[in-house]
Write a protein that binds this DNA or RNA. Structure first.
Lengths: 122, 122
DNA sequence: ACAATAGGGGAAAATTTTATCCCTATTTGA
DNA sequence: TCAAATAGGGATAAAATTTTCCCCTATTGT
C-alpha cells in the first residue's frame, strides 16, 4: 500500500470530510450502495469506467473510514455485500445535494468544462 | 498547462460537480472568498499549507468554471479581488453542509483517519 | 480436464496533481 | 539603495492516484 509522505491536515470539518471522500469513485460508490447495489460486481457494472482494482481499493478505504461495512458470505463462488454504516447514511443527503446541484446546472457546467478542456489542448 | 490524456466523464450531476470541485484547495477557496477574504494574499494567509502557485492555478480553474470572478484594479502594487458568481454562491449551502458534517463527526473521523494512516506505515 | 463464476491482490506503468525554485514588474518606506 | 508588499508565471521535481497486467482462491457444471 502506498505510504503518504505528506501528512494531511485535519484542522477543520472540511479537511476531515475531504480526507474520507477524496477519491475519484468514492462518492459514486456510496451513492450506488445506498441505491441497493451492494455487491462488488454490481458496483462495477454501475461504474464501468473504473477498473475493478480501484473500486476494491476505494471500497476498502471507505470501509476503514467506517462509512461502509462489508459482509462476506462463506459460499462458493464467494459473495460479498457492502452496506452503509450509520455514519455513511448521514452522508447521503449531502451527496444527494451535490448531485442535484450538478443536475440543475448540467447544461451550463458541461459547456464550461468542455470549453476549458478544449482551450487546454488548443 | 497540463493536457489531460483521459477524457473525463460528464454523464451525471455527480460527474459534473466533481469536475469543478475536484482540487485539493478549491472548496476552501470558495469558502474563504464567501467569508470575505477576497484578495490572493489574504487567501494565502488563510490557507498557509498551499503554495501560492497552486492557489493561483486553482483560482484560475474556478474562474474558468465560472464559480468565481476576478477583478483586477489597475493600481501599483497590484490589487486583485475575487468574488463568488451567482453560480458560485449556490454552492455555499452545500459546502457548509460538508463542513458541518465534518465538524459534527470530528472526533470520530480524526480517529479513523489516523488509525488508517498508522496502519499504512505499520 | 477445464472453463466459468465471484472475489481479490502485487508490481509497475501511466496519469494527474501538487510542490519547489526562480524569475518578472512597480511603488512605498526605511 | 535596498527590502517589503503585491500579483503572477515557467520549468521541473515530487507526490499521489489511478490504470494496466498478471496472478491467485475454490467449487460447480460440462
Amino acid at each position: 500500500m502506498y505510504e503518504r509522505k505528506i501528512i494531511p491536515n485535519l484542522n477543520c470539518g472540511l479537511d476531515l470530510i475531504g480526507e474520507v471522500l477524496y477519491g475519484k469513485w468514492k462518492i459514486r460508490l456510496l451513492w450506488f450502495i445506498n441505491e441497493g447495489h451492494l455487491r462488488p460486481s454490481e458496483l462495477q457494472r454501475k461504474i464501468p469506467d473504473a477498473t475493478r482494482r480501484v473500486l476494491n481499493i476505494q471500497l476498502k478505504e471507505l470501509e476503514e473510514h467506517d462509512l461502509i461495512s462489508k459482509k462476506i458470505y462463506p459460499v462458493v463462488p464467494p459473495k460479498v455485500e457492502y452496506s452503509l454504516t450509520e455514519l455513511g447514511k448521514t452522508l447521503i443527503p449531502i451527496i444527494s445535494a451535490l448531485g442535484d446541484w450538478g443536475d440543475k446546472n448540467e447544461a451550463f457546467l458541461r459547456s464550461v468544462i468542455l470549453k476549458r478542456l478544449k482551450s487546454e489542448s488548443q
